[in-house]
Simulated scan of single mutants.
Amino acid sequence: MSTLSVAPSGGVRGLVRDAGIVAGRELRPLVRSPFSLIFGMIQPLVFLALFGPLLAGSLSGSSRGLGSDVWQWFVPAILVMTTLFGTSTVGANLLGEFLTGAHERMLVTPLSRQSLLVGRALKELVPLAGQAVIIVLVMLPFGFDLYPAGALLGLVLLTLFGIGLGSLSYALAVAVRRTDWMFWVVHQTLLFPLMILSGMLLPLETGPAWMRTAAEFNPLAHMVTAERLLFAGRIGEADVAWGFVAAAATALVGLWVGIRAMHRST
């Protein structure tokens, strides 16, 4: 592991600088071995190739007018799913650093503990952004329509959500560091119900009333709806605003919980 040598700093400028140092350190293995970016594409492309065609005949009843084109409905959901899986598992990397002592060595540097969290969260968004661009480019020849303004806002929305979820993942890793298997128990217990109740893979409009009601309290459901509207070029709809509210709330809660956990980390 490379040694970091920095002078103590404070304030917002110091936090930004320290977070940049941490993010750069975390990105070096990705730059040296970019194949991890390619391997990360396998799951979303498999879903698009095998699951997407099965949806073609089941979206006619989908609301908000997105059911006529399966790719306009499904590709944004796959981007959310990629962000969800990518950022919710980053705490496992921190568990590995606990075992090797790398995290403890970072704690004794002059870097602020907030930057250790923010820098790691920002690092995770770089490969996810690259994967999102590749997925969109791959789907363009298959009839997926790209609306650049909406797509850029969609990436901003994913970034907000990813920072919050990644921070929560790190906080969970700190909380269960002495029983690291609990990380995956909590992760799997929460992840799949949230996915199903988001309408990510199947439309909820035809589901039972209790599922539709539960989805209203699921921030991931608002995220998925907003991404579909943004990638359809429908920027001004109210559901887009609710998606940003859900993403911003996730980011604020995640950073608050994550920073508190990182300060208590020893």
Rank of each mutant, 00 (worst) to 15 (best):
139 M>D: 01
36 S>W: 11
110 P>A: 13
36 S>D: 05
243 G>W: 06
258 G>F: 08
2 S>K: 13
81 M>L: 14
1 M>C: 08
73 W>R: 02
208 P>Y: 11
25 R>G: 03
240 V>I: 10
76 P>C: 12
103 H>Y: 15
229 L>S: 11
50 L>N: 08
5 S>P: 00
31 V>H: 08
98 F>A: 09
7 A>L: 14
11 G>S: 06
254 G>D: 05
232 A>P: 00
95 L>D: 11
13 R>I: 09
248 A>T: 12
49 A>Q: 08
96 G>S: 14
184 W>A: 06
240 V>M: 11
169 S>L: 08
177 R>K: 13
7 A>H: 12
160 L>P: 00
128 L>W: 04
163 I>V: 15
68 S>M: 10
115 S>G: 04
174 V>S: 09
202 L>P: 00
76 P>K: 12
65 G>Y: 08
141 P>W: 10
245 V>E: 10
122 L>E: 04
142 F>D: 12
225 T>R: 09
170 Y>T: 03
133 V>D: 05
104 E>K: 13
193 P>F: 07
27 L>W: 03
158 L>Y: 02
21 I>N: 04
108 V>H: 11
216 E>Y: 02
85 F>D: 08
178 R>G: 00
100 T>W: 13
42 I>D: 03
115 S>Q: 05
148 P>D: 11
226 A>I: 02
26 E>Q: 14
227 E>F: 12
77 A>F: 01
42 I>Q: 02
